[in-house]
Amino acid sequence: MKYEEIKINQAYETDKKITANMVESFAEITGDKNPIHLDEEFASHTLFKKRIVHGMLSVSIISSILGMEFPGPGTIYMKQEVKFLKPIYIDEKITVKITVKDKIEEKFRLVLATQIIKEDGSLGIDGEALVLFKS
C-alpha cells in the first residue's frame, strides 16, 4: 500500500484470538506473571471470574496489525493512547478495527483510531495511534 492510497475514514478490520499459550509466553517474556492472567483458581475469585489477557498483549496485537497488515510493512509506531474498557478473555474472538482519522501529508503521518471489539460486540479497548508511514 502507498501513503497516497490511504483515505480519511478508511477502515481495516481483522479477527483474532488470543490463546492461553500467547498469554503464558507474554508473561514469560515480560515478567508480568500476575495470577489474574495465569491462575484460573485465583482468577475465579476476582470480579472477572476467569483469566484475562494482559492489556498490553492486546495492544501488541494492534501493533502487529499496523506493522504487517494496515497500513503495513514500514509503519513506525510513534504514539498510542489507550483506554481499557472491558477485559479480553483468553480464547475470546476479537475484532481489531483500525480507522484513519487524519493524514499529516507533509510528514507522512497517520492518526488512527485503534479499537478492539469483543465477541459480544462491545468495545473492549479504544485508542488512538500516531504512525509514520512513508511508502
Rank of each mutant, 00 (worst) to 15 (best):
K2E: 10
I6G: 11
I6F: 13
I6S: 12
K7I: 07
K7S: 14
K7E: 15
I8Q: 13
N9K: 10
N9Q: 11
N9R: 11
Y12F: 15
E13D: 11
E13C: 03
D15Q: 13
D15L: 05
D15E: 10
K17I: 14
K17T: 14
A20H: 00
A20E: 10
N21V: 00
N21P: 01
N21R: 13
M22W: 09
V23R: 06
E24Q: 10
S25E: 11
S25C: 10
F26D: 14
F26K: 14
A27C: 02
T30W: 02
G31R: 12
G31H: 01
G31C: 14
D32C: 01
D32E: 06
N34S: 10
N34R: 10
N34K: 12
P35A: 13
I36S: 02
E40R: 07
E41W: 09
F42E: 12
A43M: 06
A43F: 01
H45D: 03
T46C: 10
T46M: 08
F48A: 04
K49Y: 03
K49L: 13
K50Q: 14
K50M: 11
I52S: 00
H54T: 13
S58Y: 00
S58E: 01
S58L: 05
S60F: 11
I62N: 06
I62D: 04
S63R: 03
S63M: 10
S64M: 15
I65R: 01
I65H: 01
M68K: 07
G72L: 00
Y77C: 01
Y77M: 08
M78N: 12
E81Y: 13
E81P: 04
L85K: 14
P87I: 15
P87F: 11
I90C: 04
I90W: 01
D91L: 06
D91R: 04
E92A: 15
E92N: 11
I94P: 03
I94E: 08
I94W: 01
T95K: 15
T95S: 06
K97Q: 12
K97I: 03
I98T: 11
I98E: 14
I98D: 10
I98P: 02
V100E: 06
K101P: 04
D102G: 11
D102A: 15
K103V: 08
I104Q: 15
E105L: 11
E105Y: 05
E105D: 12
E106P: 05
K107I: 08
K107M: 03
F108Q: 15
F108S: 13
R109F: 06
V111A: 04
L112K: 03
Q115K: 12
I116A: 07
I117F: 02
I117S: 07
E119Q: 11
E119C: 07
D120H: 11
D126S: 12
D126K: 15
D126C: 05
G127S: 02
G127L: 05
E128N: 05
E128R: 04
A129C: 14
L130M: 08
L130A: 04
V131E: 07
V131N: 04
F133N: 00
K134I: 00
K134R: 06
S135G: 12
